[in-house]
């Protein structure tokens, strides 16, 4: 049994544990407080009209409806699966092309000189500005969404990988060379690990961009997906359903981001925990 009095030594050893628990408790408390405030201001006190912002009861009813009967051409699960699928396909294609390209640009000045002008022209175009062209080229199906996601996710992957590789520490490259490392080993064992924090920053930004673009593209026109549900709810002036779709987008986005953060933690184990 641990004494509850000022036992400095055992308290110090576990110092981080109570702190983690406390931050979780604070987080949960905040959410609960917000939910209560929401409930009070809509259902109980009626401070906000139901057309502006739905009550918790209306929200749950909308959730039930889209979950069981479906809404805007599919159930909630179907919308989520469709959106997540498109984000993954677009994001992964962008990363699969963008990271190697950024790497080559950072590694070889000649490739950089060759590719940079193209970037200077394409970069100022906001990704969403590609949506009309994408629809003209690929109509309203999956291909047009994947295309705009690709365009928006591509740039952060390339730029950050490029920056990461350009800033690989020179003395570490030299340390590898004077200990006999081949070019392949220098790339695998120095360039990649030293650039990996920046590469992951790029991936995170790419993922965020993917979600933004996907929702925008689905708003403009889609047969299925969370953006389509949001758009339909807007046209029906169904505020509870708008909220359900927004929450679903937030949760899906957060889950994919967490997945990426997990991967990053696995790859960059060696880093000093700050």
């Amino acid at each position: 049994m641990m004494p509850t009095v000022a036992g400095a030594v055992p308290a110090k050893r576990n110092a981080w544990r109570p702190r983690v628990r406390r931050s979780v408790v604070t987080g949960v408390a905040t959410i609960v407080a917000l939910l209560v405030a929401w409930w009070l201001s809509t259902s109980v006190l009626g401070l906000v009209g139901p057309a502006r912002f739905p009550s918790p009861e209306a929200f749950v009813a909308a959730l039930q409806r889209i979950w069981t009967q479906g809404y805007a051409g599919g159930t909630l699960i179907e919308h989520v699966v469709q959106s997540v699928r498109l984000v993954f396909v677009g994001f992964l294609t962008a990363v699969a092309v963008g990271v190697p390209l950024g790497f080559l640009m950072g590694y070889d000045r000649r490739i950089e000189a060759f590719v940079n002008p193209v970037f200077l022209v394409l970069r100022p175009i906001p990704p969403l500005a590609w949506i009309p062209l994408a629809i003209v080229w690929f109509s309203l199906g999956d291909a047009s969404k994947v295309f705009v996601i690709f365009v928006s996710a591509f740039v952060p992957s390339v730029i950050n990988t490029y920056t990461g590789v350009r800033n690989v520490r020179k003395h570490l490259i030299e340390a590898a060379l004077v200990h006999g490392a081949s070019r392949g080993r220098v790339i695998r064992e120095v360039y990649l690990p030293d650039a990996s924090p920046m590469i992951f920053t790029g991936l995170r930004l790419s993922l965020q961009a993917s979600w933004t673009t996907l929702v925008a593209a689905e708003l403009v026109g889609a047969f299925l997906g969370l953006g389509r549900a949001l758009q339909t709810a807007y046209r029906d002036v169904n505020t509870p359903m708008i909220l359900v779709a927004m929450v679903a987008i937030a949760i899906s986005g957060a889950l994919t981001t967490i997945l990426l953060a997990r991967l990053e933690k696995r790859v960059i184990r060696w880093r000093a925990e700050a």
Binding site: H171, L172, E174, A175, A176, L177, V178, H179, G180, E189, V190, P193, D194, I268, W270, R271
Partner: peptide, 17 residues
């Protein structure tokens, strides 16, 4: 550079990973 002439650098230059 080559492994017949290894260098010990002032700032160690160990691979952090």
């Amino acid at each position: 550079p080559g492994p017949d002439r290894a260098v010990v650098f002032q700032q160690f230059a160990l691979f952090p990973w």
